[in-house]
Write a protein that binds this DNA or RNA. Structure first.
Length: 739
DNA sequence: TCAATCACTTAGGATATATTTG
DNA sequence: CAAATATATCCTAAGTGATTGA
């Protein structure tokens, strides 16, 4: 659906022609931010969910110490700025009277400060923690024999298996590196020792069997190995929509021809005359055969993969064995950019060890390159976290081999991220007050900054870095919004001052939303749009660097993305409080959790393509519900009948029958209810992806504390991977944690 | 002095695996 | 037991934001 509303290709490069003669009549009534904010959050016009809008925040923090926010941003020196961004930057860097204190705190130190002295972290927790864990172990040991005794043989086995699993889990837990209890390295050092085996390279290309032929213009052509490999890439994708797109086809064809020999290039000049049918069929057969493999074959493959994982999937980092995230070198393929990507279909080339830079300790076993090869470089930089890197040929960007999310390096960073967001909580009121004031600034740049910040805070928009034109799909974030991305409505659906957003954001996911805003914001937007045309930047005096510079002066570590984290986690916390009830049963609690999670996903616009089978499976469920309803009706009727009979002659047997029927009705009702809940849950989730927010925006400690308070087992909320990733939070979070 | 580069987080789709259902 | 469905994992693209170097 995102595709339909193609944003028009605008090549008229950011011609900044703002005629900026804003006259500052400061007449608007002062707005109450809180009131506006909380209720309007996340009203997507497209998908209306049952989720209640987030509750009003009770953010009553008083920022006592901070004079900065009290000062009126007194820039009498306003002058219309006519030129482009560069000029503006200069002007504004002269500006602020107030940045020094905040900025003088060196960044690296701040991290420590933010993590210490916080109620829920710190080493004192350690002992308590260990105790409680021991208790847990004991308990489980006690419970299991009892449970096993009760059941019969097969059940016994199941029990045994489960016990084993639990034991394994405990064992794992025992040897987990509890890095969060250790001192942190300072000044950008990421590790002291790093050893690994280098990345794993994909297998060489296997040429086609002789009976599978490529045809050009009806005639079989034996391709050179290189050309054949690339042809197969295309053939394999023939079922995909990509191969119908002109851009994809053209890019592919151009790059394919580069791989051809001279003769091949002479011969093959038209993609439409190429017949990949046999290659495609072969590929399909392979896929099919793979599916139909016997258990043994599958096991064999699994074991082989396991071996690769053992050898290449781990590294030693400061005496601990850590899992590597992406230890496999990306195999060659046709580039699949998202949306209308100008480079889709280009050939992503096969990498050689000669392309790869290795990073590891000087005193470690240096990884051995594949036979007959050598590394591009081996370096020993312990201020970065990557183990290997290479430059990818399609976009020219760097790619890295890094650790898994459950590693110390990633976990620590994640923790830090949430601590920064929590810190924002203590000054968000002041910051909001300031940007509301800045809405009236005499300087255009400051006004634009204020409006952008208003969007970022209220709507959780991304910062919106500039992108190089023609290199990527045309997507935008807040600072890069163009005038065609918003429409202003004086009134709409009974609301005043409504801004209609319609643009493609990250990954070409459409953002569509109608948002009532304050009068002053509305007026400013009108002003920003004056004398501009399609293709012009809405915020022509603003970019992310400027915005972030300002933010970091308000609070060390503050950047635009922190607002997303902050608002996401706050929303979860509020929603959980609002929706869940300790007296609910577990299913209801989980539904509440999912809804709270969903509110965040809606806020952050985390979408997914509706599953291909969605309509079908929904219909199936619906028919199941219908038939269950009939069953219920029948059961009820029978119950009535039985009752009647029982009344007529009070036979004990008949009473038993009545009870039975009653039970049947009850069971039926429960099942029906469950299915109906499932149906709504699924419907609400149709195009919403919960996982992204869960993984990246929601402070896990909120969820952990909620589970503890609600007595919901944590694994109902987090699967194994997620529990590993959030081990630090699971370990340190107490019942009373508040974000 | 800012565009390019670098390092790292965030993102959705594809694919594999597990579970449920018929 | 197979098919359908749900869930987990893999994969790599696409962002953010700090730093760098021409």
């Amino acid at each position: 659906m995102a595709k339909e509303d193609k944003v028009k290709k605008v090549k008229a490069k950011k011609a900044k022609k703002a005629a900026l003669t804003d006259d500052l009549s400061s007449g608007d009534a002062h707005l109450n931010f809180k009131k506006t904010k909380s209720t309007e959050k996340s009203h997507k016009a497209t998908n209306q969910h049952k989720v209640k809008s987030p509750k009003k925040e009770s953010t009553d923090f008083e920022i006592a110490d901070d004079k900065r926010f009290k000062e009126e941003p007194n820039d009498g020196d306003f002058m219309p700025e006519k030129k482009g961004k560069k000029r503006k930057r200069k002007l504004e860097s002269v500006e602020g009277p107030s940045t020094s204190t905040a900025l003088s705190v060196p960044k690296k130190k701040k991290k420590k400060a933010s993590q210490e002295g916080d109620g829920s972290s710190g080493p004192e927790k350690t002992k308590k923690k260990a105790e409680s864990k021991n208790k847990k172990v004991k308990k489980e040991e006690e419970e299991h024999p009892v449970a096993a005794k009760k059941k019969k043989k097969t059940k016994e086995e199941i029990e045994a298996a489960r016990a084993l699993k639990i034991k394994k889990r405990e064992e794992e837990e025992q040897q987990r590196w509890r890095w969060w209890e250790e001192e942190k390295y300072e000044d950008g050092v990421k590790w002291k020792f790093l050893e690994h085996n280098g990345p794993y390279f994909p297998p060489e290309y296997q040429p086609l069997p002789d009976n599978v032929k490529f045809y050009y213009d009806g005639k079989p052509v034996k391709l050179s190995l290189a050309a054949e490999e690339v042809a197969l890439f295309f053939a394999q994708m023939l079922d995909h929509e990509y191969t119908t797109k002109d851009v994809f086809r053209d890019n592919f064809f151009a790059d394919w021809r580069k791989e051809m020999t001279l003769e091949e290039r002479m011969l093959i000049t038209d993609l439409n005359k190429c017949d990949f049918g046999e290659l495609h069929a072969m590929h399909r057969e392979k896929v099919e055969a793979r599916k139909n493999m016997s258990k043994e074959e599958k096991l064999l493959i699994k074991e082989a993969n396991q071996k690769i994982l053992e050898e290449y999937g781990y590294c030693m980092l400061d005496h601990h064995r850590e899992r590597i995230g992406n230890f496999k070198i990306e195999p060659p393929a046709l580039f699949r950019g998202r949306g209308e990507h100008p480079k889709q279909g280009m050939l992503k080339k096969r990498l050689q060890p000669e392309d790869v830079i290795i990073n590891c300790s000087r005193d470690s076993r240096i990884p051995v390159p594949p036979a007959g090869h050598s590394w591009k470089e081996v370096r020993h930089d312990n201020t970065v976290t990557w183990l290997a890197s290479w430059t990818e040929n399609v976009q020219g960007s760097c790619k890295y081999v890094m650790l898994n999310a459950n590693s110390k390096l990633k976990g620590e960073k994640d923790w830090e991220k949430y601590e920064v967001a929590r810190k924002l909580k203590t000054c968000v009121d002041a910051i909001r007050a300031q940007y509301l004031r800045d809405l009236k600034s005499k300087q255009m740049g400051i006004r634009q900054r204020a409006v952008a910040l208003y969007f970022i805070d209220k709507l959780a928009l991304r910062a919106g870095n500039e992108k190089e034109e023609g290199e990527t799909a045309d997507t935008v974030g807040c600072c890069s919004l163009r005038v065609e991305h918003i429409t202003l409505h004086d009134t709409l659906d009974g609301d005043n001052c409504v801004v209609e957003f319609d643009f493609l954001g990250k990954d070409c996911i459409r953002y569509y939303n109608k948002v009532p805003v304050s009068k002053r914001v509305f007026k400013n937007l009108k002003l920003f749009m004056q004398n501009k045309q399609e293709g012009d930047d809405l915020f022509d005096r603003l970019n992310t660097a400027l915005l972030n510079k300002h933010l970091s002066s308000l609070m060390p570590g503050l950047t635009a993305k922190v607002f997303r984290t902050y608002n996401a986690s706050m929303t979860l916390q509020q929603q959980l409080k609002e929706l869940s009830n300790p007296s609910d049963n577990q299913a209801e609690k989980l539904l509440s959790y999912n809804r709270a999670n969903r509110a965040v996903a809606v806020l952050c616009n985390h979408q997914r393509a509706p599953p291909k089978t969605f309509e079908q499976s929904m219909a199936n469920l619906q028919t199941k519900i219908e038939s269950r309803k009939e069953q219920l009706a029948l059961a009820k009727k029978e119950l009535k009948q039985a009752k009647k009979e029982a009344k007529a002659n009070s036979d004990n047997k008949l009473l038993v029958v009545v009870e039975k029927k009653k039970k049947a009705v009850q069971r039926c009702e429960e099942q029906l209810l469950r299915m109906e809940v499932q149906a709504t849950d699924r419907e609400e989730n149709k195009q919403i992806a919960l996982s992204t927010s869960k993984l990246n925006y929601l402070d896990p400690r909120i969820s952990v504390a909620w589970c503890k308070n609600m007595e919901v087992p944590l694994d109902k909320i987090y699967n194994k991977t997620q529990r590993d990733k959030f081990a630090w939070a699971i370990d340190m979070t107490e019942l009373d944690f508040a974000f």
